[in-house]
Computed example of a mutant assay.
Amino acid sequence: MRVFINGQIKEFDKPINIDTAIQELGIEAQVCAVALNESVVKKERWHSTPLQENDRLECLQFMGGG
Rank of each mutant, 00 (worst) to 15 (best):
E58S: 15
E11Y: 00
I18T: 11
W46C: 03
P15M: 03
E28K: 11
C32V: 14
G66L: 02
R56V: 04
V3T: 06
K14S: 10
Q52C: 09
I9H: 02
V41H: 08
V3Y: 03
V40C: 01
S48I: 09
I16T: 12
L57P: 05
R56D: 06
K43W: 02
N17M: 01
E28L: 10
S39A: 12
K42N: 13
R45Y: 15
M1P: 01
E58G: 03
D19I: 01
S39Q: 14
E44F: 14
C59Y: 10
R56I: 07
A21S: 14
S39V: 01
N54P: 06
T20A: 14
I5Q: 00
M63G: 05
K42D: 12
L57H: 09
P15I: 00
V3C: 11
D19S: 15
I27F: 08
L57N: 04
Q30L: 13
V40Y: 11
C59K: 11
L57D: 11
H47S: 15
E38P: 00
F12C: 05
T20I: 14
Q23W: 03
L25W: 08
Q8A: 09
I22Q: 08
L60W: 08
N6D: 13
F4I: 04
K43P: 08
K10I: 06
I5T: 00
C59T: 12
F12I: 01
A35S: 04
G65P: 02
S48F: 11
G66I: 12
R45C: 13
M1L: 01
V34D: 11
R2A: 03
